[in-house]
Design a protein around this nucleic acid. Structure first.
Lengths: 205, 205, 205, 205
DNA sequence: GATGAATGAGTTTTCATTCAT
DNA sequence: TATGAATGAAAACTCATTCAT
């Protein structure tokens, strides 16, 4: 029994395969990627891949799982205990646009490919929904906090703000994908920040 | 010589085929739709379809063309000459969320299917970009007008506002597609309106 | 519309494909025969074959259908109205052994392949059972007639006689398949005839 | 040196594997059973199985070998020295139908699976033939004895009677496999006994 | 033009067998 | 020897496209 080495090796193999699939699904889409492509890209044989994943669908879900990893935790880790609600929102905004601007087209495409695929498969949907729900809750809580402390306007619906921000982030990255011009994330971030600040924060005149 | 009748007939055939394709592409995706599906849905034979469209890809582009029709003109037609910039923006917002809430999942999916497909094909991209550009310009001009007349804050970047609005609209409809809960477009519209008003309009305190 | 020519042509194609499948299934078994084999043997493309049969299974069933065609009718047609029950039974026996001896190993194998396959697939079973039932009924009726008219012994169970005859016929052909020695159908027929005659017919002492 | 223990262990492994294969081949057929199935059923690893059997085919032959065991000896052991030929035949008949009715579908299927497989492979055929030959000889000798002693009719061909009985037995069990109705072995046995008695035995009127 | 049967390369998936550990 | 991950040829089936009628 050599569990440690074996487990590590297994993890490595899984990672290699999922990475290959991630790249290809992003570039050529789910339907546009054949298992043969993944064989070539990953360097593993068909049998090996099917030994680890029951089907192309399962492999796709594994890619999804990896995607939806620790991003929320990362964000939370950037907060200080004495950040105001607005400061937190600003930080989220900056991190969001920052990561968006860093995202390769490939990763971006993959994200949409996943969402489209999922919207057609009830069986997959709950996974993605939960993901969305967590992100929305994360933002909504900050907004609720701001409203409670009087920092934000009282007539604001926290859930809607969260939906708008997440939606805008997604929509903008889709736009950045379709456009051929370099995308000015900085300017957009500043503008959105300004609007939100005046739109949400009470003291802002 | 019966050019008129023939031309009309041709138009009808084209329309029928494109409509069938539109429905199917929206429901089952580009890859999930076979030409045989389209044959069944449209009632035309394969030969007839290939007589009008060189390939499945061409048919997809035809669907795209029809999609990108007159929505902008419709909006413009709802404006009065003496609407303020904000009033115009508000009208756009309302019309947007209104049409979003009316959009079937099918149409919504098709829109994303198209955008994803396009982001992979340089040759198709310009078509979509131009469409995006027109929508952005349409909104940006209104914002610029507001800035010029002093109605809106001076530190606002009109193009960015336009990108944010279009992005949010797109992103929200994608979210509505993935979520299984009924989507509250009304509340989101109100919240977005409130934020934008305070965020853009000078007199709003 | 050219229905006659088309229908004839279609029939021809179907026949060609089923014949090819019949040969191959008999020689190499159901599992040992690939669709590629059938493509090669029939001369039609894969697409053409799948255009006519939904699956390999359906093709197998088509072969079964053809097999179980008109053999009973053929038998019935050899009877005279004034044949005694025993004469009929004797004719059946002779025809059976005659056709058995004429059956190629290939056809014989196919028959068993079918029965084995069917015994594993509930969905197919009813087809074969009905077939068996008709053959049994056919013989049982003759025996019942003989009993009723006093020609045959009274303590005989007609259904069992039918089962024994059909079973023996099947079992013997399986044996003839496995054995490498030439099979003496004539002698077996005579012996079985003699036994049955003494065993069934009243006057025979 | 622990030759005995090792040999026993080896025998045990072989037995376990062959038993697993027997069960699976019978249930799912030769082609329907994968080596992985056998790995799971037997509890031994692939390497272990391939250490003992060169191929799936070899394993199949091993199953065949075990099948063709001591049934004839069992029968002979039920005879008394002063049994008449007819009594012996009757005993065989009863034991046959008795064991048939006890046979699981699984074992039955396996037997036919084997015979079909074998009929395609000249190299395997002699093994099966020899087995058939022994069974036929066993019965034929009894019939010959009856003829010699005047107990049976003189115009009977002993070999043919043997072939008919073995064939009927096989054919009936195949029929019992395909039919979904419970099979009445008792009635068939009685009917066959009555016919044979009148058909073979001299004194029977 | 219109038809739809035919094509055949391409798809996902299986599985007997091997071989590094 | 035992293990079971890896192999890769081969399977059943699909589908965009063509073309004889």
């Amino acid at each position: 029994m050599t569990p440690k080495v074996t487990a590590e090796k297994k993890k490595l193999i899984l990672d290699t395969i999922v990475s290959a699939a991630e790249t290809l699904f992003g570039n050529k889409g789910y339907h546009g990627t054949s298992m043969d492509d993944i064989v070539k890209e990953s360097g593993y044989s068909k049998g090996a891949i099917y030994g680890h994943f029951d089907s192309k669908e399962q492999l796709f879900l594994a890619v999804l799982d990896r995607q939806t990893g620790a991003s929320l935790e990362t964000m939370r880790s950037h907060f200080s205990p004495d950040d105001s609600a607005w400061t937190k929102l600003e930080k989220i905004l900056n991190m969001e646009t920052d990561s968006m601007s860093r995202l390769s087209d490939e990763q971006c495409r993959l994200s949409f490919e996943i969402q489209l695929q999922i919207s057609r498969q009830d069986s997959w949907r709950s996974k993605m929904e939960e993901q969305y729900a967590r992100a929305l809750r994360f933002i909504a809580e900050i907004v609720e906090e701001g409203i409670r402390t009087g920092e934000f306007e009282q007539d604001i619906d926290a859930e809607s703000v969260a939906a708008i921000l997440v939606g805008a982030s997604n929509g903008l990255s889709l736009y950045s994908l379709v456009t051929s011009k370099p995308f000015n994330w900085k300017k957009i971030n500043d503008t959105l920040g300004a609007i939100l600040h005046r739109g949400l924060v009470v003291s802002s005149r």
